[in-house]
Design a protein around this nucleic acid. Sequence first.
DNA 1: CTGAAAGCGCTTACAG
DNA 2: CTGAAAGCGCTTACAG
Lengths: 337, 337
Amino acid sequence: MKSTIKDVAKMANVSISTVSRVLNNPDIVAKDKRDKIVEAIKQLNYTPNALARGLIHKRTQTLGVLIPDISNLFYAELIKGMEDAARESGNNLIICNTDNNQDRKNASFKVLSEKQIDGIVFTSEPVFPDNYELFKQLGVPIVLAATHSLEYEIPSVKVNDEQAAFDATEYLIRQGHRQIGMISGSMLDPISGLPRIQGFLRALRTHGIELDPDTCIEYGSYHFKDGYEAVKRLHKKFPEMTAVFATSDERALGCISYLHENKIKVPDDISVIGFDNTRMAGMCFPKLTTVAQPLYEMGQLVIRKLDRMINGEPLEELRTYMDHWIEERETVYNLTK
Amino acid sequence: MKSTIKDVAKMANVSISTVSRVLNNPDIVAKDKRDKIVEAIKQLNYTPNALARGLIHKRTQTLGVLIPDISNLFYAELIKGMEDAARESGNNLIICNTDNNQDRKNASFKVLSEKQIDGIVFTSEPVFPDNYELFKQLGVPIVLAATHSLEYEIPSVKVNDEQAAFDATEYLIRQGHRQIGMISGSMLDPISGLPRIQGFLRALRTHGIELDPDTCIEYGSYHFKDGYEAVKRLHKKFPEMTAVFATSDERALGCISYLHENKIKVPDDISVIGFDNTRMAGMCFPKLTTVAQPLYEMGQLVIRKLDRMINGEPLEELRTYMDHWIEERETVYNLTK
DNA sequence: CTGAAAGCGCTTACAG
DNA sequence: CTGAAAGCGCTTACAG
């Protein structure tokens, strides 16, 4: 049986108040008693009950994290950053896998609320009005990771997707490509869909490249298989393309897999650039050139922001946009040489 | 401000006992009061405080999970299985990344203990005597995932590593390979090191293949980079090898990366078989043939076992060994054709 | 069927 | 410097 503060008090022959004091403010108690109490704590292997403490302090040092798909490598890096930052600030994470499912999302909010978490991080998905209602009901600080909201005043940390897509496309153009295809998420996705398409098209425009969006863009979900299928359709309707911008590493790998199978060489025949720079990008063959997001650092920053809000400290900025960069590896061919 | 049971009681004009009853045993309270209370709960957006409940019931519906390296894809699948099973049984997971670091492990045990978690899962690492002491001190049920202990009576779920390594090696032999190298974890690792070496050597012996372990085995950590370095050394001292068994997918990919770079074709010149069957295995090129572990199912089973123990139900078996299989893809060449 | 009271394990004014 | 008491938000016998 776990020992309680009462057991310690009894063993040390003091009141529980005094035990509580050596736990929270040791200097204030007389050395002899303090020593006896410390000894009793060790003997009994006592650890304070965080539930009781939480009830009093209205603080649990626990943060809730909503993740759409925990088996995605993207979140592995992000979670690691959050986990490390949480440890630094004395917090623990309860991670809820929502499976892109609204019911599970609601259920997660409910248990997190019951467990009295101090704050919440909401990942990747757009904030719809009903989500916002839930946030307000929860009544705890919230930070958005890898997503943001322009409608609501919610702190967020992400990359500038439009600019990142612009840079990726421009990078291909600088390597001499002009027939460029894109494999994208839905235009209806206001976070990683539409903005990346806009960035892509802006780069084309900026460099005077005229391509019909209907023929140079193909859509699909972010899974490997979807990248595979999308590039098949894309290649069929746009056979002259020399490069493709796939807006996730997984899509890019699916894309490369299809091309390989059809004896189309990457990058010699068709170049591929991905998005995310998950660890996979450096482990595949050929190694994937990709738009890098600082996932680990994003995770850290999200938790640090959240911790500030919980402590009532002011935020330097509401919406933080972190720097992305092009991680040059082996899947883009330089046509200008 | 979050509303409490008092607020609900006041609004519904009843005592808090009655509110508590409609929460826990609604049938027992008169319909008119019940309706008023339900209405008040909705109005106030009341959710019960799990801390207070936990204090009374000595149950938090929260499980602690210790993971050595959360950014490893291996754990992504495992965690997903655990997460899903936990949701089914009404539990939440607190995941602690230990970074293979003893201090962090101790710290994690401490906070998990303070948070009054109902059970714990300990992943991948061998159970040393001091770990066992910690387990006992925690005083909650524990299950081992992807590891086991022969010294202590602790429930566990894993694959039979010796047999899996045997099967992988025999698979290569059946494909006509006789000059087979191995890239392994340390012989000092009693979980995924030594047993796999033993299985490898047993397969060689069984098929009358005489190879000196010193020349056909090379060691390294499980990271991509280590697989890369290890195969470099292995190939130098064992140039006639036609196949290599790398005991993790990451090692295998590092290995393939090195071979590619040195114009050694996989599988035409050298075949590679991995271990784990993480999602990466199906996304790389060529697609990795590997020993598959049912990671998702392992995760589920671990949590189900733990939940049983917490509920005082008997376990069908202490140490569960799940079936592995060879996932045939594209990195092993059949020499017999 | 319902309320008052005790108690879960702590912390924190309040006296002394 | 230290102890008794109240209270955090609930549940659960105990009366009635």
